[in-house]
Amino acid sequence: MTTGSVELTELQRDAFTELVNIGVSRAAASLRRMIGVQVLLSVPSVDIVSRSAAARLIGEREDAELVVVHQDFDGAFAGRALLIFPQEKSRDLVRAVTGEDLSPEEVEDLADEALSETGNIILNGCLATMANMLQRPLRMSLPAIMRGDGPRIFQPSGDAADSLVLFLYIDFSVRERDIRGYIAMLMDLPSMENLKLLIDAFIDRAIGDADA
């Protein structure tokens, strides 16, 4: 799990995966309160890759257009968080969160609003929980929607050319619909190194609590 000079140890990767899973579990609980039905959300795998590798990875898994909810964040570590769905899965998600059997035209009319609200709950909930557990504040921008394929989504620009991607596969189930997707966090090298230090401090606190 190495990209450039960034390498997570097995312990760091396990701790980060735990943080993310706690974050998405709390985000799922928030989404459940909003729509009134059970929501299951988990992150079975985490990888650090380059932007080009992220584009290639998602291109190998998805050949349809992608829909992305993205929010910028800054604080002890900074970057952009993306919630990514294949187009058809995003339509399933809109139907699931509205709880209605919508026509294709109705889905298109409601898509951006429903996806923005859902993305805001998941990304904000996940990152806010992680920041709280890492004992650092984070500020989040409002959500925005983007559509395109992997290269467009992960295309570097300016100073972001050497940025890295924390790439997380997510399993998502609501109203008996299985909706696969991805969470990606785009961060530059200093932010990634800061995150590693915060994960180490989180591990030290967890070990200290276990020994107490």
Rank of each mutant, 00 (worst) to 15 (best):
D109Y: 06
E106P: 02
A81I: 03
V69D: 10
E65P: 01
Q87M: 14
E105C: 07
R91F: 00
A64T: 15
S103Y: 05
L102H: 09
E108N: 08
L82D: 07
G75Q: 03
S103M: 03
G79E: 11
L83I: 02
L82Q: 02
D101M: 13
E88M: 07
E100S: 13
H70D: 07
L82P: 05
Q71Y: 03
R80H: 14
L102I: 12
D109I: 09
D74K: 11
A76L: 06
F73S: 07
V107I: 14
D92C: 00
E108D: 15
P104S: 11
E65Y: 07
D72R: 11
P86Y: 05
Q87Y: 11
D72Y: 01
V97M: 06
T98P: 04
V107H: 00
E105F: 03
E88T: 10
L102R: 05
E106A: 15
L82G: 05
F85G: 00
T98E: 09
H70R: 08
S90Y: 08
D72M: 10
H70N: 12
V107W: 08
P104N: 09
A96G: 11
A76Q: 07
I84C: 08
V97H: 01
D92M: 01
E65W: 09
K89F: 06
D109H: 10
V67S: 05
V68C: 15
F73C: 08
E106L: 14
F73I: 07
